[in-house]
Amino acid sequence: MASIRQQLTMFVPAHAAAELEHVRSIVDPVQSSLIPAHITLCREDEIVDFSSIRQRLQHLAFPPITLTFGAPEVFLGHGLILHCIEGEQAFLQLREYILASDNIKIQRPHLTLAHPRNPKASGNSLAAAASLSNPLQISFTSIYLIEQEGTSPWRVLETYVLLKNR
């Protein structure tokens, strides 16, 4: 039986994703085919009591979150990542609200361009990612509960919108 993973994520909105998706398809076509550009909000080990989390998500009182990302960096061999350089506090506050605690593991928002667990693609290089805007500012407007079965692409199960006027 294939393992099933669920997590909460925030996808890069379509109007901001074209540039990222082009680079991701070159530097890691495997990862690009599994999941669109995103930041992980809560990993599967953090959402074990999803009924309580769902209640909080259904009553979100948060505006969209704007994060700024720096230049691409190499990590763990051939991984490529964009670290958040501004806006992390809003991300942390949203995590604390969703998980109903300020005693949670530290998770830094980032965009993974190439994942080191995948085979290194022929186009995987910092030079290939150098075309991205730097700094790159993105406003995230929705939270998604997503699921992956085995090694299949991730799929969206539920969507929760961050509203400006709440």
Rank of each mutant, 00 (worst) to 15 (best):
P116Q: 06
K105D: 07
L67V: 09
F69G: 04
I39Y: 06
R24E: 09
P64L: 01
S101Q: 02
A61K: 15
D49K: 09
L92I: 15
P29W: 12
S51T: 10
L60E: 03
L34T: 07
H38K: 12
Q31I: 00
D102L: 00
P36E: 08
S33F: 09
G79Q: 02
V74W: 13
H59I: 00
V27F: 12
L99Q: 09
N124S: 13
N118L: 00
S25C: 08
G77D: 07
C42A: 15
V74P: 01
P119Q: 12
L82N: 12
P116Y: 07
T68Q: 03
G70T: 11
R54L: 15
I98A: 03
L111Q: 05
P72H: 07
E73F: 02
T112V: 04
C42H: 13
L111C: 04
L94A: 08
L113I: 05
F75Y: 14
L82I: 11
Q93F: 03
V74A: 13
A114C: 00
S33H: 11
A71D: 11
I81K: 07
I104K: 02
P63W: 01
H110A: 14
L76I: 00
L113D: 06
P72Y: 05
R56V: 04
R95H: 10
P116L: 00
H38W: 13
A114S: 09
I98W: 01
G77K: 06
Y97F: 15
V74Q: 13
L60S: 10
L41G: 10
F62L: 05
V23E: 12
V23S: 10
P36D: 08
A61P: 01
I85Y: 04
S101M: 05
Q89N: 10
R24Y: 10
P116I: 02
K105E: 11
E46C: 06
C84N: 13
P29Q: 13
F75D: 04
K105A: 10
R56Q: 06
P36M: 03
S122G: 05
R108P: 00
V27S: 10
G123A: 10
T68E: 10
P116G: 06
L94M: 13
A114N: 01
Q58D: 14
S25D: 12
G70W: 09
V23Y: 11
V23N: 12
Q107S: 15
E88K: 15
L113V: 03
A37Q: 01
V30Q: 15
E73H: 08
